[in-house]
Simulated assay, not measured.
Amino acid sequence: MKRFLRVHRMRHPSDMGEEEIHAFLSPLATVGRVSAATQNQALSASIFILSVS
């Protein structure tokens, strides 16, 4: 989640939504070449942090 928040310049999660999640996850797969499992974990964590805030 630190990485997610850094990518979005420490904006509060309540100010973000689906667009920010997509902007974070897409480069993970293409540039970062992470596995599908890692990308799914990042998606779950992103959804969780956005739903809690």
Rank of each mutant, 00 (worst) to 15 (best):
Q41V: 06
F4T: 06
R33C: 09
S44H: 08
I47T: 09
H12G: 03
Q41S: 14
L5E: 01
E19Y: 06
T38C: 08
G32S: 09
E18Y: 13
S53F: 08
F4C: 02
P13K: 03
S46F: 00
S26A: 08
N40C: 08
P27N: 02
M1G: 13
S51K: 15
A29N: 04
N40E: 13
L43Q: 08
L43Y: 15
Q41A: 13
H8G: 02
L43N: 03
L25D: 04
T30K: 09
Q39R: 13
I49E: 05
L50M: 04
N40A: 13
A45C: 11
V7D: 02
S44G: 15
V7C: 03
E18N: 06
V52A: 05
Q39H: 13
G17I: 14
A37S: 15
I21G: 00
A36D: 13
Q39G: 05
I21W: 01
H8M: 02
S14I: 10
L5W: 02
D15C: 07
L5H: 03
V31E: 04
S46D: 00
V31G: 00
I21V: 15
G32V: 06
D15S: 14
V31H: 05
S46V: 01
I21D: 01
G17H: 07
A37K: 14
A23E: 13
F24E: 01
M1F: 10
L25K: 06
E18F: 12
A36L: 15
Q39N: 08
M10W: 13
H12R: 14
R11G: 03
L50A: 00
G32C: 09
N40Q: 12
L50T: 04
F48I: 12
M16K: 01
V52W: 11
R9A: 08
